[in-house]
Nucleic acid binder design. Structure first.
Lengths: 362, 362
DNA sequence: GATTGGCACTCGGTTGGTGAGAGTGCTGGA
DNA sequence: TCCAGCACTCTCACCAACCGAGTGCCAATC
């Protein structure tokens, strides 16, 4: 294989295949790749040279296509499951397809309207998230993952202390994005209602309207001002709220459409198990999605590009979503086999993320 | 087949098989059934007469067992997949096994301790529910379904009104069982903070500590006392809270361990798809569980006994759980193939339900 | 140099036949 | 009532043969 770069004046696409051919041939080879991806996605069967010439207007004979296929295989873009079978795209082939060849296919107007209507009917945040998941699952025919809006960027609306049985205290945080977080806290049993009320009032007075990220200082002030015997409690509450922000608060996600994985034609070499297991590792999964996502852009991770071994046979399409000012506060994604309808999935994820940003409070 | 009942003085079990045999034979036939169920659950293979006599101390020859098997088959308790195969239990056979033959097998002490520890480490209600699901999924190796505690029986701790963008109001209800519900509400845009604060104060004063079920009257009073121009808003808030109680509030459930369905040896005739689809119909699923569940007792529904067609090849084991005073406020269940370890599953569900009741606030 | 038709080759999937093994039902005797 | 023996059935694993799709290569042609 030649390692020389593209010659001046020619299309830089020669780079992708790495053999020295004319720009015209290069162009056609990429057409062949696109045709292979599209056919394989549709039929789920390895596609041979004859079929390809019959179904696509390539203007050349099967023999020529075979030569092109050999070049594509040399470049690692397609592969043969076995000698006497057609070709299927490799992860690298899908990557090139997604980056260069896929045509953007926006949703139809009725589809867009359906998204808008369905999301606007939501009655609360849980419902918004659940509906977004159902939309993605249905539009893409795959699994949807929707993260709850992040706490960190939200402001504190109200702090509530609820005493429960057995010396436990429930701390409830209400943010201005409509999200509610709760944590239990062990407290001295001799805590009377009056003291609790006082603490509640002070905490709220000191923190109302602040960003959650910089609430620590406010708490310190309150703790100082409390009578000495209640100072530890104030500190504990502060710690609980801080912890809620730091750790588990980010990890709430909702999965929808797992049944889609079991549909006919969703064959995975390794079976469903690794995929389902990967999806149940919510913390790790969310980490993967977070790393992929860059603001409100749609990102695609294909096959082995995914850190998670269980997702080696799947591709992940994600987008951030958030408030109307463009800030990304959470993530939305669709997961399906590497052999997925990339343009369609990308369009669906993008559309739902966009409407979601519009509907969210704040 | 004889239709005569059991003769006086004989064991009433003759009823189950319906043929006229001695009490001793009847007893042995049920032993055979028990052996078939236990063997089939363990090996996942149809069990024949020879194997049966080898693995269990039945004290009779294979030929005798064959006769007993014929009787059991006649009674519809076991069946043959095909002529030259062993027998497998029918739904009816499992039912008899569960009702009469299964021996209670309590969890080991370390297991119980593990449950207790794991649940007590939960930091909030979401976490309690999530952990309960993981426990059940892991103990039974099946799918766990956990319902959030019901709102209706809870008392109102606090009512919060959060204004959001675009003339929407977020209504947050905090109950004394630690649960938080939220709803959006469209309001006139000219609502200023002062009015909102007043309304919030009045609503809280009028409703604090009341049972959610009888909160309607309290709201009426508040609406009356408000200046005329804000009366509609107060009424709307009341409606939202009422609606939250009446409808969607009951339907929050969490599924865990779906990956277990894809484990080797979890073969379903119809494939995973109908099962996964049934599990995604959360409203219907919850209805099924609710109908099955009778207080804190463990209930079992086997195969075609399930209303949901998708669950025809599965059995459902449920129990209510709730506060320490014995009230059932929610449901917990494990779903697996009809060929499941019933005693083990029942023990796990019961144990987790019990500890859950103890840990829950209120 | 690019394209193409022809051709030998490879290999997976299907079909049909066979034999082993497991399990059954039945019958007659203890 | 139990049980040993026996003939029968049916599944499954194995094997061989065959078919067809698809390829790679080569020589001829544009």
């Amino acid at each position: 294989m030649s390692v020389s770069g593209p010659e001046p004046g020619r299309t830089s696409r020669t780079f992708y295949l790495g053999t020295e051919v004319s720009a015209v041939s290069e162009e056609r080879r990429l057409d062949v790749l696109r045709a292979i991806v599209e056919d394989y996605v549709r039929t789920r069967e390895p596609v041979g040279s004859r079929i390809l010439t019959e179904r696509h207007q390539l203007g050349v004979s099967p023999a020529t296509v075979r030569n092109d296929m050999a070049a594509l295989e040399e470049a690692g873009l397609i592969a043969q499951p076995h000698t006497s079978a057609g070709r299927i795209p490799t992860d690298k082939g899908y990557r090139l397809f997604v980056d260069q060849l896929a045509e953007v296919r926006p949703l139809s107007v009725p589809q867009k309207r359906a998204i808008e209507t369905f999301l606007s009917e939501a009655v609360d945040l849980d419902d918004v998230v659940a509906r977004a998941g159902r939309l993605i699952a249905q539009l893409t025919g795959q699994v949807a993952v929707v993260q709850y809006p992040s706490l960190r960027r939200s402001g504190l609306r109200h702090l509530e202390l609820v005493p429960t049985a057995e010396g436990r205290l429930l701390v409830v945080v209400i943010t201005d994005t409509g999200r509610v977080e709760q944590r239990f806290l062990d407290v001295p049993v001799d805590l009377d209602d009056g003291t609790l009320g006082e603490l509640r009032a002070r905490l709220n007075a000191a923190t109302a309207g602040r960003r959650l990220a910089d609430i620590g200082d406010a708490f310190a002030g309150v703790a100082e001002a409390m009578p000495a015997e209640h100072r530890p409690l104030a500190t504990a509450v502060a710690e609980v709220v801080t912890a809620a922000l730091a750790e588990e608060s980010e990890e709430r996600i909702v999965l929808t459409g797992q049944a889609n994985l079991a549909r006919s034609g969703m064959r995975f070499e390794q079976g469903l198990r690794p995929v389902l297991e990967a999806l149940e590792e919510q913390v790790v999964l969310l980490g993967l999605l977070t790393d992929m996502t860059d603001d409100a852009k749609v990102a695609v991770s294909i096959g082995h590009e995914n850190r998670l071994a269980g997702l080696a046979e799947t591709s992940v399409v994600t987008s951030g979503y958030g408030s109307s000012d463009g800030d990304t506060v959470a993530i939305l994604s669709s997961i399906g086999p590497t052999r997925m309808d990339y343009p369609g999935t990308i369009a669906a994820v993008r559309a739902v993320a966009r409407y979601l940003s519009r509907v969210l409070p704040g």
